[in-house]
Simulated scan of single mutants.
Amino acid sequence: MARFILHETIINASVDEVWNELIAIEDWKWNRWTKLKADNPTEGVKGKLLASFEGDDTWKEYDFTFGRVSESEHLLTWMGGAGPKDCLFSGYHTMQLEEMDDSRTKLIHREKFGGILPAIGLGLPFKTLDRNYLLMNEALKHHVECK
Rank of each mutant, 00 (worst) to 15 (best):
D56I: 09
K29H: 05
E54M: 05
K60S: 13
K29G: 04
A38R: 11
K48C: 03
Y92T: 00
V69K: 03
F53C: 03
D86H: 06
M79A: 02
E71F: 08
S90N: 12
G67F: 11
L50E: 13
K60W: 15
W78H: 09
P41F: 00
R32C: 00
R68Q: 07
P84H: 04
Y92R: 08
D86A: 05
E43G: 07
S52I: 01
W59H: 11
K48W: 06
G55Y: 12
F64E: 02
A82I: 13
G80R: 08
K37S: 03
S70H: 07
T77K: 01
M79W: 04
D39Q: 13
E71Q: 15
L88E: 06
K60P: 12
H74D: 11
T42S: 04
A82R: 14
D56F: 09
T58M: 04
K46R: 14
W78I: 02
L50C: 06
W59V: 05
F64I: 01
D57I: 00
E61H: 06
S90V: 11
K85A: 08
G44V: 07
G91N: 05
W33P: 05
P84D: 02
G44A: 00
L50F: 11
T34I: 15
G55C: 03
D63N: 09
G80M: 08
T58P: 05
K35Y: 12
K35H: 15
A38Q: 11
R32K: 04
K60D: 13
W30E: 01
E54T: 13
D39E: 15
M79D: 03
S70R: 09
E73Q: 15
F89W: 10
W59S: 02
G67C: 06
L75K: 09
T42I: 08
S70Q: 07
F53Q: 07
S70V: 08
V45T: 12
L36V: 01
L49N: 05
K60E: 13
D63G: 12
T42W: 03
E54R: 14
D56A: 04
L76I: 09
E43F: 03
Y92P: 03
S90A: 15
D63S: 07
R32M: 01
